[in-house]
């Protein structure tokens, strides 16, 4: 269907050009009887395609929510505070964090080595006396958005596996976002009451990823990661 439209536009352009070249060489460039017919056809085509653009809303659906200016500003504020909150071991109290995935691994012995191959996930370890013979791993992340669209769900959690006494955190899948946006042409935004013309913000932020590991109180932890209560 798209190819047909493109071909139709090209056909119109060709007819127009042929007419233009004929007129251009004629003594009166701005006259002619066939012009009315051609212009009428053009208007009809425009009317049809413009009407279709209102009728076909499916194409403009997007798999994400729009974030408001206030929400983005709030997320940026939360992001700047969140590291210190997690570092102090109060991850449950942190606002703006969403729990994405949890794992639980049984473990024997009192030694744990952590290997993280994830380039953007920060690893924190908390020693909890009430936990015995197991480790609990949770992946948290903050909001990510491109051009005000919430894309947090597009980021997957890393693979986590325990091999003997080594906990491996594998890299997350690469996320590629391809965004196409049809914006309003200038005069349609010039008189916007909210000053859209001058204050429009196209926020882009990649959220923070935290791997929070709870281990038994007596466990010795080595490798990559910061122990929050040692």
């Amino acid at each position: 269907m798209s190819l047909i439209i493109l071909l139709f536009i090209l056909l119109l352009a060709f007819i127009g050009l042929a007419n233009f070249s004929g007129r251009f060489t004629s003594p009166r460039f701005l006259s002619g009887s066939s012009t009315t017919k051609m212009f009428t056809v053009y208007i009809i085509v425009l009317l049809c395609t413009a009407s279709l653009s209102f009728v076909v809303p499916k194409g403009e659906s997007y798999q994400g929510d729009y974030l408001t200016e206030q929400e983005m500003l709030q997320n940026e504020r939360l992001n700047s505070d969140i590291y210190s909150i997690v570092e102090s071991g109060k991850i449950e109290e942190a606002n703006g964090l969403s729990k994405k995935k949890s794992w639980e691994f049984p473990i024997e012995g009192e030694e744990l080595n952590i290997e993280s191959k994830s380039s953007n996930a920060m690893v924190f370890i908390e020693k909890v006396k009430s936990i015995e013979d197991k480790i609990e791993v949770t992946h948290y992340s903050t909001f990510s958005y491109v051009d005000n669209i919430d894309i947090t769900d597009r980021f997957t959690s890393p693979e986590v596996e325990l091999i003997e006494t080594t906990l491996k955190i594998l890299p997350q899948d690469h996320v590629n976002i391809q965004l196409v946006k049809y914006t309003k042409a200038f005069p349609f935004t010039q008189f916007a009451e909210d000053g859209e013309q001058f204050n429009r913000r196209n926020g882009m932020m990649q959220g923070l990823d935290f791997i929070y590991i709870k281990v038994p109180g007596k466990m010795e932890v080595s490798g990559e990661g910061y122990v929050v209560n040692e």
Binding site: I5, L46, V180, T183
Partner: peptide
């Protein structure tokens, strides 16, 4: 008037021609 119609026609072409993850139209 024709600009308004032409810009809507362009919008339709963009919506149809593009096959991307996110297509947003204001």
């Amino acid at each position: 008037v024709t600009f308004l119609l032409a810009s809507q026609s362009l919008k339709l072409s963009v919506l149809i021609l593009q096959e991307q993850d996110y297509i947003v139209s204001q």
